[in-house]
Write a protein that binds this DNA or RNA. Structure first.
Length: 573
RNA sequence: CGGGACGUGGCGCAGUUUGGCAGCGCGCAUCGUUCGGGACGAUGAGGUCGGAGGUUCAAAUCCUCUCGCCCCGACCA
């Protein structure tokens, strides 16, 4: 490709509304342009990268037996009503009507439709199956952000496995786990697999693949010594054992005028350190008030309550609801002597005594509370958000908490969809068996952006050769110097014929502009051709990722690049 | 959905407080001089100031409504 003919609208300045690095660089580099919030056009450069990412995904999914298909983006409501998701995922699901007034929706994922296709499976002999497609999804996200990192319309590779039994599902799940590892490695990313909450996919077990990045939206707990890793939605940790003063004393009230927070109370009385307080949160769970109890210095992870209590209908109670339930305002609440309201307590409170908590009367607290003795706990449930420095639940070493981007997610769905839609086969005994399913997603655009988050410098993007829009850019320093032009064209066509994706910068621009643009768009190798080098019979080969320069004669440069690029293509470098 | 900010040529911004000819830098076009790290000079094109309504002799500026968009918190590939 001649740069002078290419549509690569680079920007000298950062777009004002771009915050995330990838957002900034992809817009500046002319890879993408925004149409509306959460919808982006892929320009030629962006499309070339996206295609290469898709090819890598195809290769790896094909390698574990995947068969590519293409399913529709607009679905009839009927099928989604059968699985219950027409009503369950209200909000991000876009619903529409056709001319006959029939209810339809924009695909936010494709479990329903793949399962519908799978109803044609009739015999255990046809299993296992592994199907996938690369298709548009639309989710009306409440808050798109960060360029391609969180959008409403996007392309996702989603695959679906179909097996006769859970053991078969385990095998396909494991194969995806490994294939995903290879995919992210080839994209040049260090992805950490973590146990996750399954959200509205409703599966039993799921693993997210996370890449560390400042622009990330998720936090994971990670153990550097044994590599335990889990989303903080699920992560657990060990705590140093606390020894309480043996307290035979009964709870006693004490006045705490104006004290409303854990911190204030800790500063108010020396026996009320944060880890000796009981934090009492009032939540509405499925419409009923409930008390969630945590140690004073611990934070609630709401998702754990949602998962553990088995309902999505979980929210903090409003002031009126709190007063109605306990007779006092937030800041003076406690669970001592409370009955008729469900009490859920975090295990960190187990066996604790000599504790301080609210008295359910404004400006009064209780001390010498013994959890076991004084509080009628209905349910013990891990509710606590893991903090950095706490012990790894596996090996006990201190945990790190990292900010990450979710680049892939694999689910064991079980039989939820096959049951609802009637996907079943006959087994060897002639018995009907519902199919066991798994579902496995990778967002193409998000991965593209995440690579940029993970691989850039102050000059621009540093693409790994495996997905670079062009592998080599041939830069002519002096456009009106005949020998330079001849050498450039020679090298350019030799590389092209050798199957290297090459861009020839033949623009009538000053060298500084050409260098800056090449670096901004992140081409892994640049061949610089100018009269200065040519006088000595050499051109320069510059490596983007570290700036190293090699002076070679033109044919040696071609041979060197062919060898290097071909080798690096298959690696995540 | 709650909180904050913003909307003025392609990009980045000033002008709004205190109403009075719509400006600057970059980019773009033409010509000339330049040419190994974002050159210089000259000339020029390009804007319903997000939209609607209102106040006024006069609105980018004041008022009302509305749309869009970004950032921070609850959701996901």
């Amino acid at each position: 490709m001649l740069w002078s003919r290419a549509f690569i609208p680079t920007l000298r300045d950062d777009p004002a509304d771009a915050e995330a690095v990838s957002h900034r660089l992809l817009v500046r580099g002319g890879f993408i342009r925004r149409l509306m919030a959460g919808s982006w056009s892929m320009l030629p450069l962006g499309m070339r990268v996206a295609k290469k990412i898709q090819d890598i995904i195809r290769e790896e999914i094909d390698a574990i037996g995947g068969q590519e298909m293409l399913l529709p983006v607009v679905h009839p409501a009927e099928i989604w009503k059968k699985t219950g998701r027409w009503d369950d995922v209200e909000g991000i699901l876009v619903k529409l009507k056709d001319r006959r007034d029939a209810d339809m929706l924009l695909a936010m994922t494709h479990e329903e439709i793949f399962t519908t296709v799978a109803t044609e499976l009739t015999s255990y002999r046809q299993l296992p199956q592994l199907w996938y497609h690369l298709q548009t999804k639309f989710r009306d996200e409440p808050r798109p952000k960060g360029g391609l990192l969180r959008v409403r319309e996007f392309t996702m590779k989603d695959s679906y496995s179909f097996d006769i039994d859970p053991a078969g599902l385990d095998v396909q799940f494991q194969r995806h786990y490994e294939a995903y590892g290879r995919i992210f490695a080839r994209l040049g990313m260090d992805a950490i697999p973590v146990h996750a909450s399954s959200g509205w996919m409703g599966g039993k077990e799921s693993v997210e693949f996370m890449v560390e990045a400042a622009a990330g939206e998720d936090e994971i707990a990670f153990c550097p010594s044994c590599r335990y890793a889990a989303n903080t939605e699920k992560a657990t940790s060990t705590l140093p054992t606390v020894t309480d003063p043996t307290a035979d004393a009964a709870p006693q009230r004490f006045p705490t005028p104006g004290i409303r927070t854990i911190a204030a109370l800790a500063g108010f009385a020396d026996f009320a350190a944060a880890d000796r307080q009981i934090k009492t949160l009032v939540y509405m769970i499925a419409g009923q008030p409930a008390l969630l109890l945590l140690r004073g210095d611990h934070e609630l992870m709401e998702q754990k309550a949602i998962d553990g209590l088995g309902t999505w209908d979980v929210r903090p109670a409003h002031d009126e609801e709190i007063v109605a339930a306990l007779g006092a305002h937030a800041g003076s609440l406690g669970a001592v002597g409370v009955s008729g309201v469900r009490i859920v307590a975090d295990p960190a409170l187990h066996g604790r005594c000599g504790m301080v908590t609210g008295a359910n009367e404004d400006d009064w607290h209780l001390r010498d509370v013994s959890v076991e003795r004084d509080i009628a706990v209905d349910t013990w449930l891990d509710l606590r958000l893991v903090a950095a420095g706490e012990g790894c639940p596996v090996c006990g070493e201190p945990l790190e908490v990292k900010r990450t981007i979710e680049v892939g997610h694999i689910f064991k769905l079980g039989t939820k969809f096959s049951e609802a839609l009637g996907a079943a086969v006959l087994d060897e005994q002639g018995e009907q068996r519902v199919i066991w399913m798994g579902s496995y997603g990778i967002g193409v655009g998000r991965n593209l952006a995440t690579v940029v988050e993970a691989s850039h410098d102050d000059k621009g993007i540093v693409w790994p050769t495996s997905i670079a829009p062009y592998e080599v850019v041939v830069t002519v320093v002096k456009g009106d110097d005949a020998p330079s032009v001849a050498a450039a064209e020679h090298i350019y066509s030799a590389l092209q014929e050798g199957g290297i994706d090459t861009l020839l910068d033949d623009r009538d621009e000053r060298p500084g502009v050409k260098f800056a643009d090449a670096e901004l768009i992140g081409i892994p190798y640049r061949v610089t051709i100018g009269p200065r080098g040519l006088a000595e019979g050499v051109v320069e080969v510059v490596r983007r990722r570290d700036g190293t320069v090699e002076s070679l004669d033109p044919d040696a440069a071609v041979a060197h690049l062919m060898e290097t690029v071909r080798r690096e293509r298959t690696l995540g470098k």
